Amino acid sequence: MKKYFILTLLAFSFIAQAQVTANRFFYELTYKPKKDSAKVEKVMMSLDITPEKSIFRDYTAIAQDSLLQIKVEAMQKAGVFKDLSKDYTMPKFSFKIDKAYPSMEMQFSEEVVNGRSTLYMAYKETPKFDWKIEAETMKIGEYKTQKATTKFGGRTWTAWFSKDIPFQDGPYKFSGLPGLIVKIEDADQNYSWELKGNRPVKDFVEYTYFQKLQSGGMPKTIDMDRAKFEDKIIEYKNDPFASVRGQMSKEVLAYKMPGSDKTVGEMVKEQEKMLKDLYSAVDNPIEMQAITTKKKK
């Protein structure tokens, strides 16, 4: 049975209050981290579609969550600290995009360290895409798709959407076509998302076990206007552990974790370096006017 037929049934099952609470679409992102380099990287991202909204994010953390939960719970039970950093791959992208249905109001949020927990800084907007739908069609995988173009974020984008998948949504902020976007890329091929598969997700939860653990419960989201958000993100990425250092005394930083030779201070420095390396790895933003990490003067 064709995938689009299955997806159509799933779409109607949402209306019928079926047990399936989300449909997860997997998009492979091929991108150029550095604008002055031809080197490309790839990462899997997910678009989770629920009756109320969609959620788009890096799939890396979700893919590791169950295994990480087992290891953390075993460590807690044993009462001995174990450095799990080598068992955990940091997501390349820390943003999350929620699109509310049917308004398509979007909330763009970034996960940040705040003291001893994490939270999301966010802004809201409702992007308006001036799509130009063309007659050209193309087969991508199992999907018959149609071409559409638009300008967004200082780039020109070409999308291929399928009317056989009845969701007017797509990767990143893109939406508004009469079918799910199967592939979209900018004219210079800096960013290219392509649908690679999908599956239903029962008992869907928005936040991972690890996110809840870091936040001491449900992560907090702080909404602000975009200008303030961009200023705050620049400040945070220049010094991601400023809030952590401010809450830890010299005695705490010198404390050794149970069962480990590492001090809290050493762990903080390692995590700080990891985050700084992550943020400095990309200087070619999806939206050309978007914020990139600035070097301290």
Rank of each mutant, 00 (worst) to 15 (best):
66 S>Q: 13
226 R>V: 08
244 V>I: 13
198 N>V: 12
94 S>Y: 01
150 T>I: 11
94 S>L: 03
96 K>N: 06
271 Q>I: 08
89 T>A: 13
214 Q>T: 12
270 E>T: 02
14 F>M: 09
198 N>Q: 13
87 D>I: 04
204 F>C: 06
262 K>Q: 13
137 T>N: 09
200 P>A: 03
38 A>C: 11
70 I>F: 12
289 Q>Y: 05
56 F>C: 05
270 E>Y: 10
76 Q>C: 00
105 E>I: 15
137 T>F: 10
68 L>E: 00
160 W>L: 06
110 E>K: 05
80 V>F: 04
126 T>Y: 01
60 T>W: 08
238 N>R: 15
5 F>R: 15
295 K>S: 09
133 I>Y: 07
131 W>F: 12
208 T>C: 03
208 T>I: 01
78 A>D: 08
188 D>E: 15
168 Q>A: 02
215 S>F: 09
147 K>V: 00
266 E>K: 14
84 L>D: 06
251 E>Y: 12
114 N>D: 13
192 S>H: 03
217 G>A: 05
276 K>V: 14
1 M>P: 00
73 E>F: 01
208 T>H: 00
41 E>S: 10
263 T>C: 10
95 F>L: 04
257 M>F: 11
130 D>N: 14
184 I>N: 01
248 M>L: 15
167 F>H: 14
114 N>R: 02
17 Q>G: 08
254 A>M: 13
200 P>H: 02
161 F>M: 01
248 M>Q: 06
249 S>D: 04
239 D>E: 02
175 S>H: 07
248 M>D: 04
32 K>V: 05
33 P>N: 10
262 K>V: 10
26 F>K: 07
192 S>V: 01
222 I>D: 07
189 Q>L: 12
253 L>W: 03
228 K>Y: 04
67 L>M: 13
228 K>T: 13
229 F>N: 00
80 V>N: 08
57 R>C: 05
36 D>W: 04
176 G>N: 10
95 F>I: 10
235 E>Q: 13
6 I>Q: 09
191 Y>P: 00
91 P>V: 12
126 T>K: 07
104 M>T: 07
280 S>N: 13
93 F>N: 04
191 Y>C: 05
204 F>Y: 09
122 A>K: 07
10 L>T: 07
156 T>Y: 10
98 D>C: 08
194 E>D: 03
70 I>W: 06
50 T>V: 10
